[in-house]
Structures are given as structure tokens and as C-alpha cells.
Write a protein that binds this DNA or RNA. Structure first.
Ligand code: MN
Ligand code: MN
Ligand code: MN
Ligand code: MN
Lengths: 225, 225
DNA sequence: TTAAGGTTTTAGGTAAGCCTTAAAATAAAC
DNA sequence: GTTTATTTTAAGGCTTACCTAAAACCTTAA
């Protein structure tokens, strides 16, 4: 047991950088540390180690980004994660809001052969149950061009496409309110002073904070009524 | 990431003790160390830690055994392991001789909720693809009373029931020769001086060493020809 | 009963990933 | 340009799980 399997930390760092550095911006180490629940000092240390391994690039005082190697590695983990989510929801009937956490452990213990056999078994799904695209086996990512709810204007109509980044707390909150991918919504009004967004979904109006709204992505409604 | 998930070591120690201490004998630390691929010093250290946690009992110079707590914990891991093996073989069509290793990683990353949902999905199978019984959710183990091939006499007929303990090397060897559970066999003769057992399976005669024979379990043929 | 062989302990290390507290460097904002 | 906030370094520690080498200790069988 040489426990190389303890790349769990490494994989979580890479995955998190990939989530935070959407677009081409750098992910600040402080944000990394926060999401991973470690001190910024620890995160800085780990970032150094990962730079030495050629998985990250670090621009001091700015943030980190994935190298090509790191990106590939992160995509592989994300692929495994989202495939497991599909399996857990579609075949094991586990709750939509719980499978993210279950998959977050399985993703580090899954051989490539298992991953690809699972993908075939599932018929190569394109998105996870939360709407996020599943990278292909070669690490290619489908570009998404949906809009964060926080970027919409009052009066806009749309359909929820995905929740990103995911976390159990957030998914619990949304599941309890039936705020799920596929649901049409209407942005009724924006409370002043960075207040909540009043969003009508399924007949109910919800007050969603800015932070939550940034995690909900939408596409414009095809048929605006 | 407090990495409690690094109970992988603990779980592997418990599982291995459970395998080695079949019956009521004690598992020598040296045997533990050997199977786990660590030095005896390391194994001794770990045994001390596990005794403190109340998972093992250690009789110095004799060996270790599981406490009731340790036994339950080991059975849970074994249950997860064997359920995954069933899934990997039956649904993902992965090779019989490879799934043991794949499952050996998944077993440490599987939540109880996932385990039980998987068991239900699989229709609560009773044995793994290698013939070993799957402990029930409450930790109960089905007693097996089959006979190791190494305990048979020349002339005996039987059917292979299971391979135990499993290891990839052994399973590879057996799979290549179609020596699989369910196969009827005949013990033709025993070479002298602890020599190999000549075993006829599926028309072919194989010379199996004593060590391998101890891993192959059989039940007497119902209809002896 | 003594020597051999297996088992355990002791002593001294390594590496990964975490921690805290404190000081220094830098960027950003005023 | 100075202040303030963020980021990085430095320093010292901790835990788990591994390692080798050497000494000490049991058990057993000749
Ligand atoms: Mn994870
Ligand atoms: Mn998801
Ligand atoms: Mn294992
Ligand atoms: Mn098996």
C-alpha cells in the first residue's frame, strides 16, 4: 500500500482550480483555500507542490491556473464525477441533491477502465443530473454559453440549464424549492442595494440572494409568452 | 479536506485480518505485513494503533484477531467490495479477473447509502463473481462449508465453489485456464514431495501447486459418475 | 537446554498534508 | 504617495503511514 491513491488532495485542488478559473482568469489562492476548507498557508504550500509537478501555474499575488497537464487531469476527475452522478441518480435512485457528495469520493477511486465501461453502460450521457457537461474521454469540454441568473435583467424569462459550481448545501436548498434544471423561470424584480432577486418558478416566487443566483445558469426562453 | 477518508489503510488491515484469521486462529503480524506489502515493523505499529482504537486484539508473539467492532467494520468493507464486483462484471462487462482490483479501491469510497442502493439494484446477490459470500447489511456472514482443493484426496470429484483469498495474480492465472467457480473437476493424482496436484477440468489436466490449491474451494460432486 | 527462528521493540528517518502565529512583500484604493 | 488589505514567507508543530537497522525477546524443536 504505497497509497499513491492519496492523490485525493491533488485531484480536489485541480478540480477546484478548474471550477474557479472558468474563463481564463486566475483562481486566487484564497478562494481555493476557502472552497477546500484549508488555511491559505496550506493552500499556498500545496500550490507550490503542484507547480513543481507541472500541474499548476502560479502568478504571485494574482492566482493560479491549470497547465495543460493539470487541465487534462482535472477533466478526467470531473468526467468520473459526473458519470457517477448519472449512475447514482438514474440507476440507484439516490436523491439529486446527495449524489454530488457521494460522487466526490468515488471520483478518486475509479480506474480508467471502469470509467469508460460506465460511460458506455450509461450511453455516454452529455450532462450530469445538475446540468453540467461531461468532458469526453480525451479531455475535451463542451463549451457552454448560458447566462448566470445574476446577469439577467428583471423582466427576463429563461430556463434553468445547470447549477455550477455544485455543493451539497446549495443543492439541498434548491431541491427543497424545486429549483431544478429544465424549469422555466421569470425574473420578476431585483431588490435594491444588492438585494435578492425575486424569481418566479412553477407558480411560486422565491427571493434568491446574489450569491445563489451566480450559481444558477439559464438560457433565454425559446417561446416567450 | 480533513481526509478521514484515509481510513483506506485501516480498512485494508481489517479486511486482511478477516481473511487471514478464517476460523478462530490468530493472524500473525508477519502474514499481515506480507499480504499488505509493508514491513513487519510498520504492520506492528499499525496493529498497535488499531488495538488502541478497539478494532483489533493482539496476543504478542501469536497474532491478531478482530474485535466485534473490527469484525463489523471489516464485513462492511467486504460487502461493498463484493457488491461492486458484481456490478462491474454483470453490468459493466469488465473481466472477471480484473474487477477484484477495481473494487479494492471503490470499497473505501462508498457511502452506506450508495452500498445499500447498489445492493437493491443488483437484487441482493449472495456471492461475488468469484464465489465468495456477500455479508448482509447488518454484518452477518453466511457460513461456508466447502473444502479447499488442497484438502481433497486423489480420486475425489468436486465442483469449484469459490476462490479465496483473491488476488489479481491468482485470478489472472486461473482465468487463463478456465478454472472458475461452477466448473466440475477431478483430482487425478498428487505428485510426491509436496508436489503439484494434477487436476482435470473441462477435459484439460492442470498441475496446480499446493499454494494455489489452498485458494480453490470445492464441494463434493452431487452426481459422481 | 540450548540454539535457531520467528516476533517485537527501539531508535532514527522520510514524506504528504494539514495547522498556527508572525513578519514581510506587494497590490489596490484613496 | 500613503494607507490598507491581501498575499506570501518563515518558523515550528502535528498526525498518519511508511522505511531500515539493530537489539531484545519468546517459542520450539533438536
Ligand atoms: Mn472528491
Ligand atoms: Mn453534478
Ligand atoms: Mn481496498
Ligand atoms: Mn470477489
Amino acid at each position: 500500500m504505497k497509497h499513491e491513491s492519496f492523490n485525493e488532495s491533488i485531484e480536489m485542488y485541480l478540480k477546484t482550480v478548474s471550477e474557479l478559473a472558468a474563463g481564463n482568469d486566475l483562481a486566487p489562492i484564497s478562494a481555493l483555500a476557502e472552497r477546500l476548507g484549508v488555511s491559505t498557508v496550506s493552500a499556498t504550500e500545496m500550490v507550490h507542490r503542484l507547480c513543481e509537478k507541472g500541474l499548476l501555474d502560479h502568478t504571485p499575488y494574482k492566482g493560479v491556473s491549470l497547465t495543460e497537464d493539470g487541465r487534462r487531469r482535472a477533466q478526467r476527475v470531473i468526467r468520473r464525477h459526473r458519470l457517477w452522478e448519472c449512475f447514482l441518480v438514474d440507476y440507484l435512485n439516490l436523491p439529486w441533491e446527495k449524489v454530488h457528495d457521494y460522487a466526490c469520493r468515488l471520483e478518486h477511486a475509479t480506474d480508467t477502465a471502469v470509467t469508460e465501461a460506465l460511460a458506455a453502460f450509461l450511453n455516454n450521457p452529455q450532462t450530469c443530473p445538475h446540468g453540467n457537461p461531461i468532458p469526453s474521454a480525451d479531455g475535451a469540454v463542451t463549451a457552454v454559453r448560458d447566462t448566470a441568473l445574476s446577469d439577467l435583467q428583471p423582466g427576463d424569462h429563461g430556463t434553468i440549464t445547470r447549477i455550477h459550481p455544485e455543493s451539497e448545501l446549495l443543492l439541498d436548498y434548491l431541491a427543497a424549492r424545486h429549483i431544478l434544471p429544465g424549469q422555466p423561470l421569470e425574473f420578476e424584480e431585483l431588490a435594491p442595494f444588492n438585494g435578492p432577486l425575486m424569481i418566479k418558478i412553477d407558480g411560486e416566487t422565491h427571493a434568491l440572494g446574489q450569491e445563489i443566483a451566480a450559481h444558477i445558469f439559464t438560457e433565454p426562453a425559446h417561446d416567450t409568452l
